[in-house]
Amino acid sequence: MVLDISTLLLGFQFTSPGPIIVEIGPITLRWYGLLIATAVLIGVSLSQYLAKRRNVNPELISDLSIWLVIGAIPAARLYYVLFQWSEYSQQPGRIIAIWQGGIAIHGAMIGGTLAALIFAKVNQISFWQLADLVSPALILGQAIGRWGNFFNSEAFGRPTDLPWKLYIPPVNRPPALANFEYFHPTFLYESLWNFIVFALLITLFFRSLSGKPRLRVGTLFLTYLMAYSCGRVWIEGFRIDSLMLGPLRIAQVVSLSGILIGLAGLGWLYLMKRPLPDVVASPQTD
């Protein structure tokens, strides 16, 4: 008999309690929305603190966060819907039902990057500086947000009998796998990977303030892009619900592109000797 790891640690089967926290009349509070809101609030607070340590006005982060939400969330939904158009074209009313899940992080990254570029241009501040300050918060938010997939019983992987297997209710199983009960918890794999990437970025950030190592502005963002993409490439291989373009898993293609862009960007920062500033520590001690 294979025992779930949560049974060992917590005394109950590793299975989602469902997507809804509470319903009060017409008001429904869902885990997915709560986790996204929590991730945004934590991310903004963290980025403001990091901005202070790099001598950047933290109020800029507050303004930027609005742009990022406006740019990222609709883009994440649009990205997902476009690659699932055969499904949503039959039920167009579901296109705006973002609370049911179905957003793509790569869409959010594209939309958020475009929003940040425009914001930086309007406010005459370095995009690279903003990207560095936001990157640790982004990956932390991704780590938190992935748990929304757990509560929705989605974004799971192939059937498995491993100790950390995840029970999926029959209604959420693909028809071809209806006889299987347990699957790879790929949401958990990615959440854990993202926490590791967050630890790497935040360590680099604070060590760079003392010049050990001596980082150039933009390094954290490019490191985030490469590190997250490395994890997503192999984790996506477990998924059974990947967005596809013919025989290709879109997330893997985009992630491989992200790794190459990150490598090229680091080469541009360090090898080409571009006139971008080094990280400057704040004299504050808080």
Rank of each mutant, 00 (worst) to 15 (best):
I261M: 10
I105A: 02
E59K: 04
V56G: 02
I125Y: 13
L35N: 07
Q124T: 13
I240L: 12
W147T: 01
T223P: 08
K273M: 03
A108V: 05
A97T: 15
Q129S: 09
G258W: 01
W234T: 04
C230Q: 13
I96A: 15
G246C: 12
L166D: 01
I42T: 11
T285L: 09
A251L: 12
S6V: 01
K165Q: 08
D278P: 05
P163L: 12
Y189Q: 04
D161L: 03
L78K: 02
I5F: 05
W99E: 09
L9A: 12
G33S: 12
N194W: 07
L3P: 03
A137E: 11
F150E: 06
A72C: 08
A131G: 02
R214K: 14
K52W: 07
N179Q: 10
H106F: 14
A137G: 08
L29Y: 11
R249Y: 03
L140R: 00
M109E: 13
F238D: 00
T219L: 01
D278Y: 09
A178M: 14
P163N: 11
L266W: 03
W85A: 14
A137T: 01
L60P: 00
Q84N: 09
V171E: 15
S208M: 02
G141K: 06
I20A: 07
W193Y: 08
I27S: 15
L50A: 01
W147Q: 02
D132V: 08
Y88N: 10
L162H: 03
L60R: 14
L8Q: 07
R94L: 10
G145F: 02
L117S: 08
G267W: 09
P136W: 12
L204W: 00
W147P: 07
A178S: 10
C230Y: 04
F151S: 02
D241S: 06
P17M: 10
P185W: 04
F119T: 14
I110F: 13
I95N: 08
A264V: 09
T38E: 12
I125T: 09
I105T: 06
I105R: 00
L29A: 04
